[in-house]
């Protein structure tokens, strides 16, 4: 069991943009240690909790790349609200698999799924409802849009690495990635 210094609780947000949720699943793989995190921080916004509009937070972990108009708006919003913004996983750091569509024009990418797929019937429409987000032509990593304070590489980063980084930040220390276990891209 870890020892706790007396200090005020931090606010933590975890956000999910254009990724596969694997980074969030790896965060859950810290298992029981989530209770250690909960002692040091309130998780105020995350896919795993009900939440309101994102308040000011000390730390935001952001999974995924910027793929659409909404992600673009959201990352600017997060940057305003978060003291420390962490690019969480390879998609956030360098677009990874999410960015593989950049080699093709968006229309071709769309058509492959919504027009030409062998299982499609002939009566479909290409999605375009006003309530849907608009995909950008190119997928970009977070740091192309905002300043990023720290990166955690990995697809997904290992749970140990995630816990180490979080725990250091929650204790007002700068993590040293050289000490992180199982650190690697991919």
């Amino acid at each position: 069991m870890v020892k706790y210094k007396k200090m005020s609780k931090k606010k933590l947000a975890t956000v999910w943009l254009g990724g596969c949720s694997g980074c969030h699943m790896s965060l859950l793989d810290i298992d029981e240690r989530i209770l250690d995190v909960a002692k040091l921080a309130d998780i105020v916004k995350s896919p795993i909790v009900d939440g309101k509009e994102m308040p000011e937070v000390d730390i935001a972990l952001v999974e995924g790349s910027i793929t659409s108009d909404e992600h673009f708006r959201e990352i600017l919003h997060i940057r305003k609200k978060a003291k420390t913004l962490i690019a969480f996983g390879d998609c956030a750091v360098m677009t990874n698999v999410t960015g593989m569509r950049n080699y093709f024009p968006l229309k071709e990418v769309f058509d492959a799924a919504y027009v030409n797929a062998v299982s499609n019937d002939t009566e479909g429409q290409v999605p375009g409802h006003p309530s849907l987000l608009k995909l950008n032509d190119k997928v970009v990593p977070l740091q192309e849009v905002v300043n990023v304070d720290f990166v955690i590489p990995g697809c997904p980063p290992s749970a140990d690495t995630i816990f180490y980084v979080l725990f250091e930040f929650l204790n007002d220390r700068l993590p040293d990635l050289g000490k992180a276990k199982k650190l690697k891209y991919g």
């Binding site: 299982s119 499609n120 019937d121 479909g124 409802h129």
Partner: peptide
């Protein structure tokens, strides 16, 4: 044999198709 039994339709309001 899936194509003999399953078809899907793209719809305007969702990025998820309707099989």
């Amino acid at each position: 044999q899936y194509l003999e039994f399953i078809a899907e339709r793209s719809v305007n309001w969702s990025y998820l198709k309707y099989p």
